[in-house]
Structures are given as C-alpha cells and as structure tokens.
Amino acid sequence: MEDFYKEYILDHYRNPRNFGHLERADAAAEDLNPLCGDKIRFELEIEDGRVKDVRFSGKGCAISQASASMLSESIKGEKLEDVVRMSREAVLENVGIGISPARMKCALLGLKVLKSAALGEIAGWPD
C-alpha cells in the first residue's frame, strides 16, 4: 500500500486528460457518489458506432478523477458495444494501485457513467 498514490495517479488528478465539455455531444451521462460527493459526467461524440471524441468533467478524489481520466484516454476509437462490455477488472488494472473495498465506488464511478452514456446511445434513449 506504500504505492497507494503513484506518481501517475496524481498526474491524472492534477492534469486530467480530456477534461471539459464537447461542443457537440451525441451521448452524455452523469452520476454522483453521495457518500463522498464525487461527481462525474462523460460526454461522447460518436461516428459510425465508434467513440470519436470524449470529455469528462466533475470533481472528486484522486482515485475517481484519475480513473475517469485514464478511462477517457483508453476509449477513443473504440466501438460503443466494446465500451459497454468493458470490465471493472480492466479498469482496476489500468488504475494499477490497490483499491480497498471502501474506495471501490470511487475507482469505478467513471466506468459506470461512461457505460450509462454508451448504453443510452445504443438504446436510443431520448435526450
């Protein structure tokens, strides 16, 4: 647990990638973790069933923000149906530090929101 907060986690926390909003979002979703007040929003631009561009926004702990930031980097060009199938294990592996049960929701909040946005698009939910 000495590697609890690695250099790259702090880097993603302080310099989140793909942070902000899209001018034209085809799909979006947001959610919060009422326990800690963490909030994340994902916006997707979609072309031919693939993620053309992505932005996320929100605030929260280093784990939730870094996880969402890394997630945003990993999905560009991916098919929506693959985004929907992304496993929590893959996300945790990507985060790469030991996550205690109490912090699991922080690490997975980004994935939950991202999947909501992708699923909404696939299902054709009305805006």
Binding site: F4, Y5, C36, G37, D38, G60, C61, A62, A102, R103
Partner: peptide, 26 residues
Amino acid sequence: DAHPHDVASILDTEGVCIRAGHHCTM
C-alpha cells in the same frame, strides 16, 4: 488540493481513523 477521502485513506494506512465527506450536512 488533496480530496479528504484520499487524505483519510492515507491516514488509515498509518492507523489514524478519521471521517471524510459531507458529514450529512450537504
């Protein structure tokens, strides 16, 4: 700029139990 949950997690590794969050006073 450390989020209190991160602070509490680090303190936990040192045996220090504190609370972090909105304390039910949103």
